[in-house]
Amino acid sequence: MSDEDATTVPAGDFGPPEDGLQRLWTPHRMVYIGGQDKPADGTVGQCPFCRIPAGDDEQGLVVARGAECYALLNLYPYNSGHLMVLPYRHVSDYVDLTDSETAELAAMTQTAVRTLGAVYSPAGYNIGMNQGEVAGAGIAAHLHQHVVPRWLGDANFLPVAGQTKALPELLADTRARLAAAWPSGAGSTSEGGR
């Protein structure tokens, strides 16, 4: 095509056709979709859930620490307040947890629900684990239980229809609110190291 054949086309002609939908463009999500920072393999050395407890709680989004388990915010949350409760030990299967890890995981999950209820007043929760990559676990090598607060009318289908998630609060602010509200007597310390 020569310069003589080139024509100028208005920028407005390049978008999707008019369909009545408003679009929320979230190019920052490409990091997650592209797998940036996803572990190259299932080893302890590659596992972010093994590295996070050795670092700063605010930087790692750690909300609370127990003797064998800890709670942190999901870096790619489904909803504001989306917590994960997991053992410090690098274990992938629920049946491989020790009795004391199982008990603390359950107790911290209950505390997570109580704390989310006190801070955000959700109408309900999704609580569960995805065992294995085929079941949807993003990091299958290190067991983690999701605690997702839910509200009537939340953006349940927005990720499906618009492939985006609207979150009204920054993760650092969510972490600070939940860490401050987490009861210190609930088998955890919300600040400092293990």
Results as ranks from 00 to 15, higher is better:
70 Y>Q: 02
65 R>A: 05
52 I>G: 04
50 C>R: 01
125 Y>H: 11
94 Y>W: 08
75 L>D: 11
74 N>H: 03
128 G>M: 09
91 V>R: 00
91 V>I: 11
122 P>F: 01
88 Y>R: 02
68 E>C: 03
110 Q>E: 09
122 P>V: 03
63 V>Y: 05
56 D>F: 13
52 I>R: 01
105 L>M: 15
96 D>E: 08
95 V>P: 08
116 L>M: 08
48 P>T: 04
125 Y>V: 06
111 T>Y: 09
114 R>T: 12
115 T>Y: 10
67 A>P: 04
102 T>H: 08
121 S>W: 00
41 D>Q: 07
82 H>K: 07
78 Y>W: 10
114 R>W: 12
59 Q>A: 15
44 V>S: 02
75 L>W: 07
117 G>N: 09
131 Q>F: 13
78 Y>V: 10
79 N>H: 08
67 A>H: 15
106 A>F: 14
83 L>I: 13
129 M>G: 09
46 Q>L: 03
90 H>F: 02
92 S>A: 15
99 D>F: 03
85 V>M: 10
67 A>N: 14
111 T>I: 09
112 A>N: 12
65 R>C: 07
129 M>K: 13
61 L>D: 04
87 P>Q: 06
55 G>E: 09
45 G>A: 11
71 A>W: 05
64 A>S: 05
113 V>M: 15
44 V>L: 01
61 L>V: 04
59 Q>E: 15
74 N>D: 13
47 C>S: 10
94 Y>M: 13
113 V>C: 13
117 G>E: 10
61 L>S: 06
59 Q>N: 11
58 E>L: 11
